[in-house]
């Protein structure tokens, strides 16, 4: 199987900052691939390396088997949906969408047809005559998508495209993007800091931390079987248990984590004090203090909610404990 995008020991350093540090990625053709991580973790730099806006300090990038070394952005069969959409303010929607075709020297008639098709694809038929400033955030996002897709890229790069949208629109766009990707079969590479977004949309997720990929896998693996404490904490907001709870398994030092929804409050278990509670819709988030270290419990609707300052005990079922190899440091 051909890789759509392959990174071999790629690094990108800005002075002494290692934005991307010795990263290997293999993105398969037709895959919906998410790069997840906190801000400054190197995920956006990786995207810009694929687009060609950055050149690697070391290592090799290839796109569909061809080295991308020294290939400028305008010669790559890759298109980007920018975080701020970057629609051209002086052009109307139709001219924005057909910009790439105009540059490619395609006749006015043909590019008009192609642009209108692309607008139909993103559910904005008949919007061609408007200026970007007359559109809502969600509509601009769709125009940016159409402008990238009309060029029939081999890889579509999306840089936090849903970041500026409100919750409801974001959920709707998540489904639409997924649907679009399935329909077109184009490789999508999606950058986000929202774990929910990555898990719900992607075929595979790469979790970034400090310029490195700490885990790559299917969403279920990332969520249920984190390999390092960082993933457990960042993706599932898991409670990483303190060292005195950690045991050695088969001679390997391990760290244990337990998900907030698996934590139970009651008479049994470790003594704890309730620090605060907050209602978050479907459940209540309880912040607990276990003699110096913090834990979070999510209590579903219907359970008795303790009040702040109350003393209680925390416990969990053995099968809810997830063990990870301890980090090197």
């Amino acid at each position: 199987m051909t890789s759509a995008v392959a990174f071999t020991s790629v690094s990108r350093h800005f002075g002494s900052v290692r934005a991307v540090d010795n990263v290997d990625i293999n993105i398969a053709e037709g895959e919906f691939f998410a790069m997840l991580g906190p801000s400054g973790s190197g995920k956006t730099t990786c995207l810009r390396l694929i687009a060609g806006f950055e050149q690697p300090t070391a290592g090799e990038i290839s796109i569909f088997g061809q080295s991308a070394q020294g290939v400028p952005p305008y010669k790559r069969q890759v298109n980007t949906v920018f975080q701020d959409y970057a629609l051209f303010p002086h052009l109307n929607v139709l001219d924005n969408v057909s910009y790439g075709l105009m540059i490619a020297g395609i006749s006015k008639k043909e590019r008009r047809i192609a642009a209108e098709e692309a607008l139909e694809l993103v559910a904005l038929p008949g919007y061609g005559g408007r200026k970007p400033s007359e559109l809502s955030g969600g509509q601009r996002q769709r125009v940016a998508l159409a402008r990238a897709l009309v060029n029939k890229p081999k890889v579509l790069l999306l840089d936090e495209p849903l970041g500026a949208l409100d919750l409801k629109l974001r959920e709707q766009m998540q489904e639409e993007l997924k649907e679009l990707q399935r329909k077109l079969g184009i490789t999508f590479v999606f950058v986000t800091h929202d774990q929910g977004e990555a898990l719900s949309m992607a075929d595979r997720v790469a979790v970034f931390n400090d310029g490195k990929i700490v885990q790559v896998g299917k969403p279920e693996d990332i969520y249920y079987r984190p390999e390092v404490p960082f993933v457990a904490d960042f993706v599932g907001s898991s409670n990483v248990l303190p060292p005195h709870v950690t045991k050695e398994v088969k001679g390997i030092a391990v760290t244990a984590a337990v998900r907030p929804e698996a934590v139970r409050l009651g008479e049994k278990g470790l003594p704890a004090t309730v620090r605060s509670t907050s209602f978050i819709g479907t459940s209540t988030r309880v912040s607990l203090d276990l003699g110096g270290f913090q834990m979070i419990a999510l209590l579903p609707k219907g359970q008795i909610i303790p009040s702040a300052g109350e003393r209680t005990h925390v416990s969990w079922a053995d099968e809810d404990i997830h063990l990870m190899e301890q980090a090197d440091e």
Partner: peptide, 23 residues
């Protein structure tokens, strides 16, 4: 003027000169 406009133009296939001319 947002800097990503220039990147967007390059991304859509325009050379530096075309970007200057059209964007």
């Amino acid at each position: 003027t947002s800097g990503s406009l220039i990147e967007a133009s390059m991304d859509l296939g325009a050379t530096s000169f075309q970007t200057f001319r059209h964007v």
